[in-house]
Each structure stands twice: as structure tokens, then as C-alpha cells.
Amino acid sequence: MAHRHDHSHDHSHGPTLSRDAPIAEQRSKERAIAIAAGLTGLFMGAEVVGGIVSGSLALLADAGHMLTDFASLVLAWLAFRLARRPADWKRTYGFDRFSVLAAFVNGISLLAIAAWITIEAIRRLRDPSEVLGGLMLWVAIAGLAVNIAAFWVLSRAEGDNLNVRAAALHVLGDLLGSVAAIVASLIIIWTGWTPIDPILSVFVVLLILRSAVSVVRESGHILLEGAPHGFDASAIAADLEQTVPGVLRAHHIHAWSITQERPMATLEVDLAPGSDAERVRRQVKSRVAQIARIDHVTVEVSEEAEGAHDHDPDCGTPADRPEP
């Protein structure tokens, strides 16, 4: 059986900013996170003092959330800075994946915050304490203004970037916390009913929990090198065998993502006798880009004697994947 392998990749290893997004767009996201981190850090101290003096769990919970938000936003900003570093021989994909790791950590921290607020709310409901509604109201209004500004900046830059999305979720949690604190303070001022403070805190937790789980799930999927959303290896193999002249069989198909915006794939194709390997390789890359929206595709082609193989359902293992 004669074999001929073509390992042409057309890859370059320059700066590792997402290849599908302009550098200016990445720096715009980086700048948005820096602004949001500055706004959050400046107001956090005032909210801590206001929460302690007023005795409001809603304010203290929001202040604790803002503390972790500040750390998370700094981490997200650092991820963008690292992603600008070029690839090297030890890190052939560069540092793009750090932004996904930052999103994962941010999502986990949101879950931890949710658990802490819930536990503290239960304690407050069992043992109510005095809350100064007036002070709580003014601090919450100021916090709402800061959070609206930070969320507006991040929402304009979000796009499909998991890192920015996780950061925006943190700020959204703060924004909702400020709204809850305002509502709670007004009810306390009008009625004196302090249990509304921990009750609304739990309501905010429920609002942000679903999004936090989504960020953790998506970032974890990327870190585990799961296939991009909607990618079906068997369907792609069947499509290539039916639509690309010269493809006898497509197999050992793998797809994963460096970041949400940077999917990649590798596959092997067996050529029909007499087929032009380079032409087939180009057409396979073009077809995969068209049906799976993956531009970075590594294709290995081999000439096989017709009928000399069986359709092996094995799609290969990570060890089979060539390094782009």
C-alpha cells in the first residue's frame, strides 16, 4: 500500500492575539476592563464603610462582591496583557488560553460569592439586626451609578469574548445588588421591616447564578479541549466524502478551541487514486471553514489503494493531533 503524506499547514506563530479579531478590537476590550476595574476599586471602599455603619447585609454583600470583582477585573485585564505576548517554543499557542482560565476563575468566584451571601442571609433572617435605611440608600444609589457606568463600558466591548463576558457578569451582579439595596433601604425607611435586606440579597444571587454557571461550563469546556459549539465530526466526515472530489475517506477528525474566538481542527483524508493532493487539501480546508466556521485547519492527506481500508469509527486520540 502506497502512502504519501502532505503536512502543509499554512500556519504562522506571530503575536497571539485572537487571529479572528483585529488587534485594535482586543485593545479596546483590554481598555474597557481597565476602566471597569478602576471604577469598581474606587467605590469599593466607600461601600464597605457604608455597609458597616448602616448594618446592611445588602451593602456588605455588594461590597464583598465588588472586592472580588476588582480582583477578577484585574485578572481579566492581565489575561489580555499576557495574550499580547508572542508564542515561543514552550508555548506554541502563546498565552491566549490564559483569558479562558481567567473566565473560569471568575465564574467559580461568582459561585463562591453566591454561597456566602446565601449563608449570611439565612443567618440574618434568623437573627435580624438594625439597618440604617437612610445611609444605606445613599450609598446604594452611588454604587448603582458606578456599576451602570462600568457595565456600559464592558457591554460595548463584550462580543463573544468569554473573559469580558465573565467580567461583565461580575459587574452586572454588583449592579443588581445596588438595585436590591436601594429597594431594601426604601422599604426599611417606609416600614421598618429589616428582613427585606437579606431576602433581596438572595434574590440577586438567584439572578446571577445561572449566568455564572454558564461561564464556568463554557470556559471549562474549552479548557478540557471540547469541540466548538455545533461541531459534529461524523457529519463533517460524511460531507467531505460526498462533496470534495478525490476524498475517499475523512477520519481522525479533532476540533478544539484556544479561546472561544479561536477554534481549530485537524483531520486526515485518504485520497482516491490519481487525485491531486494539494488541490484536495485546499478544498478540504475551504469546505471545513464553510460548514464549521473554522479557518485554522490542519489537513493530512495520504494516497491509499482503493478499498484497502475499512471505515474505522475511531476518531483518534489527542496524541494523534499534530501540533499546528
Rank of each mutant, 00 (worst) to 15 (best):
V153A: 15
R123H: 15
L111K: 04
A142I: 09
A112Q: 07
S99L: 01
Y93I: 01
E120C: 01
F95Y: 14
L125Y: 10
Y93K: 07
V153H: 02
L125D: 15
T118E: 15
F104C: 06
W116H: 02
V153M: 05
R97T: 00
R156E: 07
A115V: 01
A157D: 01
W116Y: 02
F151A: 15
M136L: 12
A140K: 06
G143V: 03
A121Q: 11
V105K: 04
R124A: 15
A140I: 06
A145S: 14
L110T: 00
E158G: 02
L154A: 04
F151H: 15
I108G: 09
T118P: 07
G159S: 10
V105Q: 07
R124L: 14
M136N: 08
R156G: 08
I122N: 06
R124Q: 14
Y93Q: 01
E120D: 12
S129T: 11
A150E: 05
G159D: 05
A103G: 12
I119W: 14
R123A: 15
I141N: 10
L111R: 00
P128R: 02
A103P: 08
I117Q: 08
I148K: 14
A115T: 04
L132Y: 06
P128K: 00
S99F: 03
I113C: 10
L111S: 08
V100C: 13
A115E: 02
D127E: 14
F104M: 08
G134R: 14
V131P: 05
V139L: 09
A140T: 01
I122D: 03
P128I: 12
R97F: 04
A112V: 13
A140E: 00
L125K: 06
A150Y: 07
I108F: 13
L154T: 04
F151Y: 10
L135S: 05
S129V: 11
M136G: 06
V146S: 12
F98Y: 05
A149V: 04
L110K: 01
